[in-house]
Amino acid sequence: MSQSGLSTKTKSSKSKLHLLAEEVRAEIDQELTKYPNGWSISACMPALRIVQDANGGSLTTELMDAVAEYLGVPEISVYEVATFYSMYELKPVGRHKICVCTNISCMLCGSDGIVEHLKSKLGIGFGETTDDGKFTLKEVECLGACGGAPMFQVGRDYHENLTPEKIDKILDQLD
């Protein structure tokens, strides 16, 4: 029961807490300490990130339910957050997620060519994953690195001032 008195689950639904590993819970607990009592919903975003990372980069409905149950908030509140932000993946992704910015600065600096090169090199379009499960290609909005446009993000790393040659080098270094 959260502060607003909202019911968080129905009687019939089975607990999904077992989906959250010990370490994952410990990390979420760490986040929870940052917010006042009764505002566990505030830890929803970090909790989803922690769970997504532990699950190989994507979320499932069951995992979101588990997060809701753990935080004591309605399931739909977690779905709202997870579907709103583009960094949460609701379908399985490859080992390396390539997020290409096509927003205005990158576009003016030639992101179209970057996208073209990536698509032909990997043989996939936006929102797709290579057959070997190595790469997923994703179109994203501005990542705040306009000074180095065109750019993309692979995993946690930003790569700026991209050229086809630079892309080949970056991707070849990944396992």
């Binding site: 909202l6 709103f84 932000y85």
Partner: peptide
């Protein structure tokens, strides 16, 4: 008292 509906997506 039951939040069943929500706004998903953006």
């Amino acid at each position: 008292g039951i939040k069943e509906l929500g706004m998903t997506g953006r």
